[in-house]
């Protein structure tokens, strides 16, 4: 080696002729599907019928959101509260799973295994009827909300759901967060256990209590590591929120089922709904990606 200059940079990634062939096949496939639908099934696309369920003109001619958009808003509210609750459940049970206390460890383990080994549908059915049939009436949630002043009722409707459906919405949030919490619990546990033993020892050696070791040393490092899988799980939560449509919570999928039935425009409805979900989830993915970058560049 006589030369101190760096070696020439590698060639940039490029599409090969093979890639172009694959693209060609993909596009041909799509054209075929469109052809089948259009010519063979003789399907007449009627996008405007369904678009009216996204936004409509009211009596004054102004554009106002229609059921599909309000359904999307319900989905977002459901996902928002579900994410917060699932994060708390996941954090607490994840911590329990790394606890030295056998009781806490066993209970958390039971919870995680139970949920991960039951189909979501079955879980939702069993749990929903228990929560909404037994717990909600016992707590008197509906009476409580109905007795609220008009101002607070408006706040409830903005943040949660129509007053009459509040306990149903709450049951949905609980089901969804209990379900997703089990997966977050696993992520949290793995994150905590991925921090090397030396960090615990060093923190304990300067006299930190177990609580402070977790809060000041272990969790800040673990969070950085688990951010990508955590982000993935939150996006999954948005998608999974569709299952609570089965317990008559009027979120996007529930509304879409009704719109598809009344208009009989099945393809259009579900393509639009699919696009709405995609827009929300992909925006979240981009957001989390930026957050991750920010945390990485901040410090190592």
């Amino acid at each position: 080696m006589t030369d101190r200059r760096p070696p020439p940079a590698r060639k940039k990634a490029r599409f090969t002729p093979f890639d172009f062939l694959m693209f060609g096949i993909l596009i041909a496939g799509m054209i075929y599907i469109v052809y089948r639908v259009d010519q063979v099934l003789v399907y007449h696309w009627e996008w405007h019928t369904v678009f009216e369920y996204v936004v409509r003109r009211d009596e004054t001619g102004a554009l106002v959101p229609n059921v599909l958009l309000t359904g999307l808003m319900s989905t977002l509210r459901l996902a928002f509260w579900g994410t917060i609750a699932a994060a708390i459940i996941g954090l607490v049970t994840g911590l329990c799973r790394t606890s030295s206390n056998l009781f806490l460890r066993s209970v958390a383990r039971l919870y995680v295994e139970l949920i991960r080994n039951i189909p979501p549908l079955v879980f939702i059915f069993v749990f929903y009827f228990f929560i909404s049939g037994q717990i909600m009436p016992a707590l008197g949630i509906d009476e409580f909300v109905r007795s609220a002043s008009p101002e607070s009722a408006a706040v409830v409707e903005l943040l949660f759901s129509p007053i009459g459906l509040f306990s149903n919405f709450l049951a949905g949030v609980i089901c969804l967060s209990l379900f997703e919490g089990a997966y977050i619990s696993e992520i949290v546990r793995a994150g905590i256990q991925s921090i090397e033993k030396g960090q615990w020892e060093a923190a304990r050696a300067i006299g930190l209590s177990r609580f402070n070791v977790l809060r000041d040393v272990i969790l800040p490092q673990a969070i950085r590591k688990i951010l990508p899988p955590l982000a993935g799980q939150f996006i999954t939560l948005v998608k999974d929120s569709a299952i609570v449509s089965l317990i008559s919570i009027q979120e996007l999928t529930y509304v879409a089922t009704e719109v598809a039935a009344t208009t009989t425009r099945v393809f259009e409805t579900w393509i639009i709904v699919g696009f709405l979900y995609f827009a929300v989830c992909y925006s979240l993915a981009l957001l989390f990606g930026r957050l991750e970058k920010k945390m990485q560049t901040g410090r190592r």
């Binding site: 030396g198 020892e201 060093a202 304990r204 050696a205 006299g207 209590s209 800040p220 410090r299 190592r300």
Partner: peptide, 19 residues
């Protein structure tokens, strides 16, 4: 906690808090 306060320890692999 008293023991940890009165006894300092230095490890082979430093174990500084990287964050």
């Amino acid at each position: 906690e008293r023991v940890r306060r009165e006894v300092g320890m230095v490890f082979q692999h430093f174990n500084l808090f990287p964050h």
